[in-house]
Write a protein that binds this DNA or RNA. Structure first.
Lengths: 203, 203
DNA sequence: CCGGTATGAATGAAAG
DNA sequence: CTTTCATTCATACCGG
């Protein structure tokens, strides 16, 4: 069965915590970006087009579905910046390491770095951190321990019920918490993708 | 358009060789598979995102009373909270009297009260008011907005992570193609993400 | 079973 | 920093 860890999150097969779920989502997003980029790249070089702008993920984070016009890229319709998965990951990691408030200087750096992965402004970064902090403020109330153990158990039950039968794969744990080496680095950098990719795909 | 700065890699490198292209194709194939798998995973196991009020001090696990179609219902639909008619009534009345934004204190009260009539969390209440307000506000001005607004609206949903499928695919054991940027390494180097959400700091 | 619509939730940006 | 707004995404529910 599941076991609870210190955070009250329980670990076990078949059940995911909210965090894990979030992580999963993030990762899926990451893959999606990879695919998108590769697709783009593929297209551009496929026809031997100038690949100068090939793999650039839409800076907007959101692709324009199919704006037909190959020339005009007017992504303008969206005023709101949407971080690409890449940017998000980076932001998250930065947020984790430096829980402190990034200075102007720092923000600028971050923005610079992120601009490598898509359009972004310092303001975006600033806002992101603001929101991030503010929204995570209310993340505590999980420590209501004491008699909550019971409560917790109750919740667990529910969770179990819902995810109890993953209907096919519990293997997502592999993708989830584990490790950094999802195999991706290998995959796309010089790595040796030993074996087949099945090793990191869902069984 | 070209944004060479986004991906310095290609700007300075020129064209790809046949080998590189070949490698690229393989990679694309691999990724497409990964995406496919992830998509499956995503669909199967979850449709539930890490939402805010995962675990509340109140210990209320909110979820739907298993709507389940006639046949096998997969993972639960514990995502979206659905107010009961009673709750809705109460919410409406409260909304009427105090159009103002209920503060945390207030929200908590409301949530407490409503919990008497079904599962609900403070976040739910908070969201409800947010949406309620926004909704009524938008409904007022029936601005046809003949301007560019139309275009904007045209966008609508999309974004689906569609990973093209690269048909044939063999076992590419040596997928390697220096994809300098993409920043994937960064991307998922840390699988750890701290969830957050539900803030609306209640006093 | 599928598509449309109502509405809960997530989040970037802005106001206070 | 905290709270609110605006826009969008995702899903429950309904009609064909």
């Amino acid at each position: 069965m599941e076991r609870e860890n210190q955070n009250g999150a329980y670990v076990g097969r078949g059940v995911m915590t909210e965090e894990q779920m979030e992580t999963l989502r993030k990762q899926i997003a990451v893959y999606s970006v990879i695919c998108e980029q590769l697709a783009l790249l593929h297209n551009s070089l496929s026809s031997f087009h100038p690949l100068s702008s090939g793999i650039n993920p839409n800076g907007d984070g959101y692709f324009n579905p199919m704006v037909a016009s190959s020339s005009a890229q007017r992504i303008s319709t969206r005023n709101r910046w949407t971080p690409t998965s890449t940017q998000l990951q980076i932001l998250e990691s930065i947020y984790e390491e430096k829980s402190g408030t990034p200075n102007r200087r720092r923000i600028r750096e971050i923005a610079a770095e992120l601009s490598e992965h898509g359009q972004i402004t310092e303001t975006n970064v600033y806002n992101w951190f603001q929101n991030r902090r503010a929204r995570s403020k209310r993340k505590q109330p999980q420590t209501i321990a004491t008699t909550d153990q019971a409560e917790d158990a109750a919740v667990t039950t529910d969770e179990k019920r819902s995810c109890g039968d993953s209907g096919g794969f519990e293997s997502y744990e592999h993708i989830l918490f584990p490790s950094p080496d999802l195999g991706i680095e290998h995959l796309l950098s010089r790595g040796e993708l030993s074996g087949d990719f099945n090793s990191y795909t869902i069984d």
